[in-house]
Write a protein that binds this DNA or RNA. Sequence first.
DNA 1: ACCTTGACTTTGATTGACTTTAACTTATTA
DNA 2: TAATAAGTTAAAGTCAATCAAAGTCAAGGT
Lengths: 153, 153
Amino acid sequence: MSNISDLIEQYLKKLLEESLEDYIEIQRSKVASYFNCVPSQINYVLTTRFSTGHGYIVESRRGGGGFIRIVKLPLDHRVNLVLGICNMIGESISRADAIGLINRLQEEELITQREKRLMCSVIESKLQYLEIPVHNQLRALLLKAMVTAVLKE
Amino acid sequence: MSNISDLIEQYLKKLLEESLEDYIEIQRSKVASYFNCVPSQINYVLTTRFSTGHGYIVESRRGGGGFIRIVKLPLDHRVNLVLGICNMIGESISRADAIGLINRLQEEELITQREKRLMCSVIESKLQYLEIPVHNQLRALLLKAMVTAVLKE
DNA sequence: ACCTTGACTTTGATTGACTTTAACTTATTA
DNA sequence: TAATAAGTTAAAGTCAATCAAAGTCAAGGT
């Protein structure tokens, strides 16, 4: 215990709990200097403890007035389902499997018809520049991003 | 997060919303002194947040009695809508412009909050690990596919 | 294995010096 | 006197420098 990363993790989770919203906005440099560490340490904590796999979404903006926003996904069974789905998708997925999964989501009424069309259009768009293996990875990446995004609420 | 540019953006959008017309006319120097910033800051906001990519047209006149007119393009003529938007997107689009366009679609209530989040997640997903040389082109491709999927009907 | 650090990169915002344009005012000329 | 040219002032435009973040990555530490 009490390595800096754990302390920062606890600190951020406390902030999230105290927040009236389901998210917090921090400044990387502020948090870093509060903990007397280099700024990139914050990135380390974010990627190791606040990934989508852990039920968080991290957004940010650089430049003057930049910030990092940490969104906590509500942990109802729907979300668990989707986290499970993300796990299922893994690093790579075929076109057919992706479409199948999207159809499932729609049958379960987790997404609307329009959202299904939208997601399928992404999966099926002709990415003529890419090699096949990269294509499967790209699909997985995009699909997970999309599934996560529709839940974030 | 209270950088001046964001505040100016909000201010102008509010003016546009309150306006009875589909445009507003401002004086650069007035707005600048209202926000206590240099006049060219207004230009920065206009080019980064009110580009045609974002669905606005900016016209102006210099000299005595000069002004800047910001026209909000109605994105609502269903028939040519998809074609027009795809045209706007072109072969290549920056991350910022893509997000701006998606925001416009939502403001115009052509897409829902969830659909917006979904689309943004695609645009913002971290593709950097896959070695794709042409991010801007890929973005354009995906965005056009999504717009078409969700708006054609 | 996980954590910590720091050099380097990328993105975004702010500023100010300089340029261009348009309207107004005054002087000059047919 | 009316038309035109020249000068003055009041805008807006451009661009490059600088500042202010956050991101990446790899090397080293525990």
